[in-house]
């Protein structure tokens, strides 16, 4: 990253001549943002899963109890939430594969930035396929 070199330097700077901390694999730029997003999505999915195992357990209680809770998943507000959840999973999954490639593929570290944009691209394609289908289901009256 050949940014303008000036005398003063930010705390944590690796080079006293650079204003910004030098970009490493995981600090600054794409490397860091992918990590931040990976962390946040991982936490969100974890807490969803805790609740999800409990709501599925209602099939052992009664058909009425399970259907009552599932019907709350079908309203438009929850539908938006599910779209966000799938968005989080899709990012975490694609970026997880990117992390694995960085770790195991010899050229991984070299292409980590390119792969970040591939992750974003795959995410956009996935969401273009998923979101319209799901939102039409949720906002239409079918099956209500």
């Amino acid at each position: 990253m050949s940014k303008t070199e000036t005398g003063s330097h930010a705390p944590g700077a690796l080079s006293p001549t650079s204003k910004r901390p030098a970009g490493t694999l995981y600090r600054g730029n794409e490397g860091m943002w992918s990590w931040v997003l990976h962390r946040i999505t991982g936490i969100a999915i974890f807490f969803f899963l805790l609740v999800h195992i409990l709501d599925t357990a209602l099939i052992r209680v009664s058909p009425e109890a399970y259907n009552a809770v599932m019907s709350s998943y079908k309203n438009p507000i929850m539908g938006l939430g599910e779209t966000a959840l799938v968005g989080a999973i899709a990012f975490h999954a694609f970026n997880g594969l990117r992390i694995i490639l960085v770790d195991f593929w010899t050229k991984g570290p070299k292409y980590q930035k390119v792969m970040f944009y591939v992750v974003i691209g795959l995410w956009v394609v996935t969401m273009l396929g998923f979101a319209p289908r799901h939102l039409i289901n949720v906002f239409s009256e079918v099956g209500n």
Binding site: P63, N67, M70, F130, H134, N137
Partner: peptide, 17 residues
Amino acid sequence: LFVNLMLGDGIKGIDFA
């Protein structure tokens, strides 16, 4: 996610049955 949300009626098709 594909079987439960994309196929059939998607989320609207999920119930006890």
